[in-house]
Design a protein around this nucleic acid. Structure first.
Lengths: 340, 340
DNA sequence: CGGTCAATTCAAAGCGCTTTGGCTGCGGTT
DNA sequence: AACCGCAGCCAAAGCGCTTTGAATTGACCG
């Protein structure tokens, strides 16, 4: 069932039917009703390829997905995706993933833009001075960055959580509890969020004339094993930290394991705070000692990004709006006063 | 730069240029070279919408993604996706995710098929007698199922791992080690894989005239908390199992925690074997006691599904090929002889 | 009563590509 | 010398939709 068939069936022109369906005003209300009705009854659905060709709009949101044996997509991605799906579902948007070799990202963005394969894209895990953002800006393809980038020299639309504030809060709490040596187990510093988190923690310490020496920092892939290794290293020196702030729940698993192996009791000997992106399958309150966290739902962020992308596509949003979400500090049993 | 421009530029017809580019034989080799050359030099890329409209082929693989606040996409999905990406990337295929309310899946499949938005789809997490499979079969949209379904009354193309064999092996090992009471912490039985795993374990026990009573089985969502709860229940009775087989690494986290709380030593008091889908961020060898697993890379499966979908699209594969992958049993320190 | 205007409707021109159905030469046949 | 067959190329017809520019109609105006 296509437009032509439908319109002859109704003894109307394709023009009118098309307009009736797309809500144009210059169509008689009764005619519109007839058309809508017939369309529904015959299950008419406009062919998206044809529509795309005619309008140049794709009705899709794109994501350039770096892949390759060396690239691990982390589990945060799927939560974020769920969030985008939550929004997209109600707005007839589909999501297109374009898998790409890590070193061909640029080509892929260009292709998506040139072909108008998608109306907008989102950029995740931005790095400082991220080249993708520069490129997108120049291509004129609508986009939203999930996270932030620094040193780009222009404003761009993003949504991010207040990573700096989150870790500043975490640090402040620990200091108030008497901790003086606080360790940081972070994601890789090539990611902006990790830079911000370090900055936040450092600042809370500086506010109390305390230091965050390099020896107390580890920055690496956010895996269970990474957390474990880092914690072993930090905790195996004589002057070990009495508290650790850590960038993900998965890393925290490794931290707990390391503490156990070293015979350190949480929170008596070691306080731990981790950032929680809110996974349905791993919850901080279920850790062997309920884990204090800085919490922000990455899924909610996904939904919001989709919403803003839709706004940019429709032209409702045009300026480089910066949106920073506050982060909740959830105090749980894994923090306590510093051992003395 | 479009076909028309390119062809006038070359003083050739669109027909010839199109054919040259698409490798049709009725084009002079030298002409073809010239065309190819000019196309590359000017960065010509055929507009996919136009091509789609003309050919009816989409160049995309679809996935109907159930979403909604009640629906959690589990982290396996992203690994699977990575795998599809690994293949798709080299073959110019994009992936389209159509987020859908759980109860509108059927509509979405129909839409994808009717509009030819995608050339093929894959179906994940199949249930027994899965209606989606029935529907796809009838719609004539190429598809591959990742996993199996039973009781459909016809053959369909799928790829699955040998869940039954895996858990049979796991059971056999435990029995040989002297275990007589073996518990099962499974995913929900609405999923076919869970049915197969239970069947496999039951069979290994039956081979030795042993029973798998309902009291030793828990089937539920595969979360850390689920694993914990189930393990607490199984282990809190007087006649507790001496071994537990468990359907996922994430659940195993909860099992370990429960054992720790109950003062049970792994493997002295309790042997544990879990199924490992191979996550880069959580590895069985890094558990507090290295965890024995039945292992199969879900990412590899994703790549293979993409490959077979491509084959079905091109017509290279037509029959309902069933592909079942063997599963490796990785024996590690979490299993030992039964306590006596 | 001719003319104007707003409300509706329509025919037709694209959008950029693939594909059908020729057409043109030229070497080779008979 | 007339005829074939084939390699190579082309014009034009779609694919199904949106949108431009015009036509039609009836109400309303002076």
């Amino acid at each position: 069932m296509n437009l032509k068939q439908l319109s002859t069936m109704l003894a109307l022109s394709q023009t009118t039917v098309s307009r009736a369906l797309n809500g144009y005003p210059e169509v008689n209300e009764e005619t519109r009703r007839r058309v809508m009705d017939a369309a529904k009854r015959h299950g008419y659905r406009p062919n998206p390829s044809a529509r795309r060709l005619a309008t140049g709009k794709a009705g899709m949101i794109g994501y350039v997905m770096p892949t390759g044996s060396a690239v691990d997509i982390d589990p945060h991605f799927v939560e974020f995706l769920s969030g985008m799906g939550d929004y997209a579902r109600h707005h007839g948007l589909d999501l297109v993933l374009s898998p790409t070799d890590a070193d061909e990202e640029e080509t892929t963005y260009r292709r998506l833009a040139a072909n108008k394969q998608v109306d907008a894209v989102y950029v995740s895990a931005p790095r400082p001075a991220d080249r993708r953002i520069k490129l997108l800006n120049q291509l004129g393809l609508p986009y939203i960055v999930h996270g932030r980038s620094e040193g780009l020299g222009f404003d761009f639309p993003f949504i991010d959580i207040d990573n700096e504030g989150a870790f500043r809060q975490a640090g402040r709490l620990l200091i108030e509890l008497g901790h003086r040596r606080v360790g940081l187990i972070n994601g890789e510093l090539s990611q902006t969020f990790a830079v911000f988190r370090e900055r936040g923690l450092r600042q809370s310490l500086a506010d109390h004339r305390l230091d965050l020496p390099q020896s107390l920092i580890r920055s690496q892939a956010m895996t269970d094993e990474g957390g474990y290794r880092a914690a072993r290293e930090l905790l195996s020196v004589p002057d070990r930290p009495t508290a650790i702030v850590c960038s993900s729940l998965i890393m925290a698993l490794g931290v707990f394991r390391a503490a156990r192996e070293l015979g350190l009791d949480i929170p008596r000997d070691l306080s731990v705070i981790a950032h929680d992106d809110v996974f349905p399958w791993l919850k901080p309150e279920n850790f062997s000692v309920p884990l204090a966290t800085t919490r922000s739902s990455i899924r909610a962020a996904g939904a919001r990004v989709a919403e803003r992308l839709a706004a940019r596509i429709s032209g409702a949003e045009t300026s480089p709006v910066a949106e920073v979400w506050p982060v909740d500090l959830m105090v749980r049993a894994s923090v306590a006063g510093a051992p003395r």
